[in-house]
Design a protein around this nucleic acid. Structure first.
Lengths: 300, 300
DNA sequence: CCCACACATAAGGCCATTTAATGGGTCGTG
DNA sequence: CACGACCCATTAAATGGCCTTATGTGTGGG
C-alpha cells in the first residue's frame, strides 16, 4: 500500500498559514493571492474531515486538530528542504571528468592541482577511458573528447588543436645516424602504422607511405602508452605536440620535423542543459583560462 | 526567508521511482503513466542541477546525489503521511456539542452516557450557551438549536416538537385553591410574561391576556432556570413538556392543562459538508434512534 | 533479425490552481 | 455612530502545470 499522503500543495500552504497565523500573510510569503490560500486550506479541511483553523475576526487560529498537525508537518518540510538543498549543493561536491588517457596524463593531471586549489570544495574524480562517455549512463559531469566539436545534445568548447607529428627518442634517432628527411622514419619501427595520422602526415610531407600497410600493427591504444614506448626507444610514433611539450623540452622525445598535420581537436563537452551548474561552470572557466581560450568557443 | 522547497509533486514521484527502481512501476504505483513519471523526474533533475538516476538498459539506478536524497525524502513523507492520518483519525477524537441549557440538562445530560458507552473512543465536550453557534468561529462539531429548521449552510435534523404549556409547583397551585381554568394563571406571578409563548398559549386557550403586558419581566434566560424558579414556587412559566417529563412525573411540577401550543422545534445541526464525518454520523444516528425519529428528517 | 521492454520526447487537452472582483464581518477611530 | 481599514469567503474566469496519447530510441533475448 503506497503510503497515503495529503494534498501536498495544500499542506504546504497550511504550514505557512499556521506559522503566520494569517491567510493574507501566508499568501504574501508564498507569492500567491489570499484567495488561493483560502481555497487550499478549505481543500485540506475537507480532506482531513475537520476544520483546521477557527476564523476569528482579525486572525485565524488553529483548531486542536490543526495544531496537532503543525509540528510534524513543519518537521517534514524541514527534512525535504534540507534534502533538496543538500542535493543541490552536493551536486557541486564531486566533479566527474571523463577523459582520454593522453589528455589526462599529459595535460590535465599536471594542472588539475591548480583547479583544486582554486575550488577546494569541489572533489575531482578523473575517469580515463577510451570509450566516449554517455552522460545518461555514467555518473560523469564533463568529458574531454577528440572529435569534430559536434555532438547532439552536448555543449562543446574547443580546447586545443590536435597538431601531431612523428616523435621518437633521441637515441633511436642517433642509432640510424639521425633523421634527415621524412622517409628516414620508415627505416625505423613504426609503433602504430595503421594509425590514419601516419598516412596524413606522410601525405602532407609528400612521401609515399605504402610501406605502412605492410608493417605489423603494434599500437598500444593510447598516445600516452605509445609515447612511453617511444621514449624507451622501441620505435617512432605520431603524437599530439601540445601534449608532449614537457617530454620534448626535457629531450626525452624529439620531434624531427616542424611539419605537423592535424586531426580531431580536443573539446570539453557536457550535457547542454547543465551549462550553468556551478561546478561545471567552474571547471569550464578554469580550463579555458588555463588554455588561453576565448571563453565562447562553443562548437557546433 | 521562507524555506526553499523542491517541487513537491516531482519529489513524490521521485521517491516512488527510487523505491521501485523503475519509472514504469512507479507510474503504476502512483496511478499515472510512465511518461508522466519521466517528466517529473526530469523536472526535478533540472531543479536539483544533477541527474538523479542513471538510465541503464533494463532499469534505472540512483546516482550518488539521488541516493543521498532518498532516505531523507522517505522520512519526510512518512511524517507527512503520519500527521495526515492522525489528523483524520484524531478529528474523531472529540465531539464538540453546542446546545441550549434546557435541552442539555433536561434531555441530553441524562442520556449522553449511553452514547459514550456505545462510542468509547469519542470524547464528548458539551458546551451550553444561549447564543447560536458559529461553526466557523468555535471549535464545535454539532449544535442543538431551537428554530425553524432552516439555516443556510447547515444540515438540520428534526429532533422533537417543542410543545409547551404552563407549569408551576403543586404548592403554588394549592395556595390559590387550585388552577381551574386558564385565567386562574393570571392571578399568579408570571415569571416570563414577555415570552411570546404565553401570548400564543393564552390565545389558543381563548383567554384575553392583555394583563401580561403590564407585568414586570423577570425572565431568567433559559427554561432550565425558570423551571427551577417555578419548582421553588416563585411563579408560573411556560415550558417545553417533552423536556420536563421527569419533573412532572415526580410531582415537582404540574401541568394544569392538557392544552399545549408549539414553538420553534428542536433541531440537530452541523455544517453541511461534514455529514459523513464519522463522529458526526455516529451522534446523528444515536440521537435519532434515541428519539425514534425516522433517520432522514432533514430540514429545509 | 525481430520482438519485447523500458525510458525519452512531442503534441495536445484537461483540470486543478490561481487570479481578480466582490461581499460580509469586525475593529479602531474621528 | 458612521466610516475606513483589515481580513477571510466566495464567485467566475483565465492560466498553465500536469497528465495522456502516440511515437521514437536503444538494448537485450529468443
Amino acid at each position: 500500500m503506497p503510503l497515503q499522503l495529503p494534498p501536498l500543495t495544500a499542506i504546504r500552504v497550511f504550514e505557512a498559514a499556521a506559522r503566520q497565523g494569517s491567510f493574507t500573510k501566508a499568501a504574501a510569503e508564498l507569492g500567491m493571492t489570499q484567495a488561493a490560500v483560502s481555497y487550499q486550506i478549505k481543500l485540506l479541511e475537507e480532506r482531513v474531515g475537520a476544520p483546521l483553523f477557527l476564523r476569528k475576526p482579525r486572525q485565524v487560529v488553529l483548531t486542536e486538530v490543526g495544531s496537532r498537525m503543525v509540528p510534524t508537518v513543519t518537521e517534514a518540510f524541514g527534512l525535504l528542504s534540507e534534502a533538496y538543498q543538500v542535493a543541490r549543493a552536493g551536486s557541486g561536491g564531486t566533479l566527474g571528468i571523463s577523459t582520454v588517457h593522453t589528455f589526462a596524463s599529459n595535460w590535465l593531471a599536471p594542472r588539475i592541482g591548480s583547479f583544486q586549489l582554486r575550488h577546494p570544495n569541489i572533489a575531482v574524480r578523473l575517469d580515463t577511458s577510451s570509450a566516449l562517455v554517455d552522460f545518461s549512463r555514467e555518473e560523469m559531469d564533463i568529458g574531454i573528447r577528440s572529435g569534430s566539436g559536434k555532438w547532439p545534445g552536448l555543449a562543446a568548447h574547443f580546447l586545443l588543436r590536435s597538431q601531431y607529428s612523428p616523435m621518437l627518442s633521441p637515441r633511436l634517432a642517433e642509432s640510424i645516424g639521425g633523421i634527415k628527411e621524412p622517409a628516414d622514419l620508415l627505416k625505423l619501427r613504426i609503433l602504430n602504422p595503421a594509425d590514419i595520422w601516419w598516412k596524413d602526415w606522410f601525405a602532407k610531407a609528400n612521401v609515399p607511405a605504402d610501406a605502412l600497410d605492410r608493417m605489423p600493427d603494434t599500437s598500444l591504444g593510447s598516445q600516452a602508452a605509445e609515447a612511453n614506448a617511444a621514449m624507451a626507444g622501441q620505435g617512432v610514433t605520431v603524437l599530439t605536440t601540445a601534449l608532449f611539450t614537457a617530454e620534448l623540452a626535457e629531450g626525452r622525445l624529439i620531434q624531427p620535423f616542424e611539419l605537423t598535420a592535424h586531426g580531431g581537436d580536443y573539446w570539453l563537452v557536457y550535457p547542454e542543459g547543465r551549462r550553468n551548474v556551478p561546478k561545471i561552470r567552474a571547471f569550464r572557466e578554469w580550463i579555458m583560462a588555463e588554455l588561453n581560450c576565448p571563453t565562447d568557443t562553443t562548437g557546433g
